[in-house]
Write a protein that binds this DNA or RNA. Structure first.
Lengths: 186, 186
DNA sequence: GCCAGCATGTAAGGAGTTACATGATTAT
DNA sequence: ATAATCATGTAACTCCTTACATGCTGGC
């Protein structure tokens, strides 16, 4: 069982029969904010493995020959066991921008500042998208847990934005100091 | 060029000649807080690739036949170009715990709370380690940028801890509500 | 003498990405 | 008609991890 496999089982645990395409769309609208959204090809590959293991059942329907997957009893057992008994791994973060800052001595501060500002805009966009997702979640008791994660995500990306702004300010003030040093001939 | 390759070049850009072993140690003490720390085997494989590409030079020295690597002029050029011209990718997060919360409807709230508390402890430990690293960084102008990243990391993991606590409280209050519902016969 | 830490690798495999390839349906 | 969206897959590859394998050196 791969992590993505469990994630797909989890999405199916909300009770609906979904196609690979639909699962991918849903992952893009939810998992992608705090976890990876697997590419289509992996979704299909994974679903086929889950089917082979008897954790999901398939029904081909419609003229478009859409395969709809549904969580089997065995699938639910495996999923619940995983959630309950396997302690979650610590989160893994690959903060490419932080790496750039770490090596900041090699570029002009302006380069770093531009990259931080781009990051800030990215956070803004993401927060807008998250807010849109959150709207579809509130007021339906079926989505309490996803809504909690959405709340957490809002806090998370807001903090991320704040941190980027603070770093930008710190770099800008350093640059100013250097300018003053130059002016005063130091 | 792999991301890990650039990371190693970056570590070497601070001017010291380092062995694979030393690079791994340093990565464990720095990169691992905000980026992945590559396993030993990958460090050696990567260094060999960098050497083949002429981006680092090697000197075998000492009775222990330690190979020490140093950044070449070409290596520095490649690194600086990457830092300056390749816009950093957005950070990727795999928050396994958030995934568990997302699927919270499948387990008892107590399970989730226990996992959140474990996460909180993990954050605490990490913050202690980070503080220790930070101490070695301050007051030496060579480490200004790593120190900025360490500051950011402190904020980051503190926010992470706060979020975990808040979620724990939310789950606990929900459980209480249900208990009251039961008591009053609802 | 022996264990912890220093030091370097090889081999195999797993998870995930990218590129490629195809075809049906719906709305304009 | 034609473009966007729905829909499913295969093949190749990359990055990374895990497990294995070996040997030196310094301190107790």
């Amino acid at each position: 069982m791969t992590p993505t496999g469990y994630a797909l089982l989890g999405l199916l645990s909300f009770g609906r029969q979904l196609s690979g395409y639909e699962l991918k769309q849903w992952a893009d609208a939810s998992l992608r904010f705090f976890y990876a959204s697997p590419p289509m090809s992996q979704v299909y590959a994974e679903l086929d493995r889950l089917r082979a293991a008897g954790l999901v059942t398939v029904k081909t329907s419609g003229a478009r020959s859409t395969k709809r997957y549904r969580l089997s009893a065995a699938g639910r057992r495996v999923l619940v066991r995983w959630l309950r008994d396997e302690p979650p791994e610590p989160p893994t973060l690959k903060h490419h921008l932080a790496l750039r800052v770490f090596f900041g001595h090699l570029v002009e501060p302006e380069v770093l500042i531009a990259q931080l500002e781009a990051h800030r805009r990215w956070c803004d966009e993401l927060l807008v998208e998250l807010a849109a997702v959150k709207e579809t979640l509130v007021e339906d008791p079926a989505w309490v847990y996803p809504a909690l994660v959405a709340d957490w995500g809002e806090t998370y990306f807001t903090a991320e934005r704040t941190a980027a702004d603070r770093l930008t300010a710190q770099l800008a003030s350093e640059t100013d100091d250097n300018d003053k040093d130059k002016e005063t001939g130091r």
